[in-house]
């Protein structure tokens, strides 16, 4: 596991790929963001998105899943304090191949229950190297015992 003690400001790790199929994009939108442009190509063609694209909240869930549930970088995450500056910069389309560049920004002194507070910047890009989303996540990460 990647513990608090293994992290230093300035470290960078690239995680991925991830993404969502057309069926997954539609299922998420029906459940949580049923705006017309997230439900059909036809409605999306009238908008900035051009064609069916994922809800920004779906994209955010993919970013967090990549960060928390990753055998390549098994972060000992004990929870999230807050998320800052979540930005949706460009549409995410079905079957885009997304990868996240994670930069360690800050590692604060340890807090209760053997965890330290870690601030991470995540930058999500697609297969064309275009940035599609970003966020800053403030997490609790377990210390080495």
């Amino acid at each position: 596991m990647i513990a608090f003690d293994d992290l230093m400001p300035g470290q960078v790790v690239v995680l991925g790929p991830t993404g969502a199929s057309r069926d997954e994009v539609l299922a998420f939108a029906r459940a949580y963001d049923p705006q017309p442009f997230h439900l059909s190509d036809e409605a999306a063609s009238q908008t900035y998105f051009g064609r069916l694209s994922a809800s920004g909240w779906h994209t955010g869930a993919l970013m967090l899943d990549l960060l928390i549930n990753n055998p390549d970088w098994p972060l000992a995450c004990r929870g999230c304090h807050e998320i800052r500056d979540l930005r949706w910069r460009a549409p995410v389309y079905p079957d885009d191949r997304l990868s996240a560049r994670v930069t360690v920004i800050d590692c604060d002194v340890p807090e209760a229950q053997g965890a330290g507070r870690v601030t991470l910047d995540l930058l999500l890009s697609n297969q064309d190297d275009a940035t599609v989303a970003q966020m800053t996540a403030v997490l609790a990460v377990a210390r080495r015992i």
């Binding site: 949580y32 049923p34 809800s55 869930a61 993919l62 967090l64 928390i68 004990r78 929870g79 999230c80």
Partner: peptide, 28 residues
């Protein structure tokens, strides 16, 4: 989606990011 728990919450608390998605559904 594996999304993080809220720091300091009990084991039976639901993940915070799910709540954001629900808030979006109510707004829509």
């Amino acid at each position: 989606f594996a999304v993080p728990a809220v720091v300091g919450a009990d084991a039976d608390a639901v993940p915070g990011y799910w709540l954001c998605c629900i808030a979006m559904r109510l707004l829509v």
